[in-house]
């Protein structure tokens, strides 16, 4: 199963529709929506958190959360 956490640095995926219920409202409001492209920009030195770009927003989220958001690799 592919999630944001399985992306490698620089890779792009598309957030799958079935993730809608697991994404917290706050993250949705910041643009992290099903159907949009998500790029993994940086990984923190201890492999966590992850620095992503989604819908033009540059966000840092924890691996734990990233592992719940399913994606389709493009």
């Amino acid at each position: 199963m592919n999630t944001i956490a399985t992306l490698v640095k620089g890779e792009i995926g598309i957030i799958s529709e079935e993730s809608l219920d697991v994404i917290p409202l706050k993250l949705l409001e910041m643009g992290c929506l099903p159907g949009v492209e998500v790029e993994l920009l940086q990984v923190a030195p201890l492999q966590d958190p992850l620095y992503i770009c989604v819908n033009g927003s540059h966000l840092a989220i924890r691996k734990e959360m990233a592992a719940q958001i399913k994606i389709i690799k493009s």
Binding site: P24, M30, H58, L59, A60, M65
Partner: peptide, 9 residues
Amino acid sequence: SFFVAEMPN
């Protein structure tokens, strides 16, 4: 705990 931080330009 739920963590999200914006990385501004």
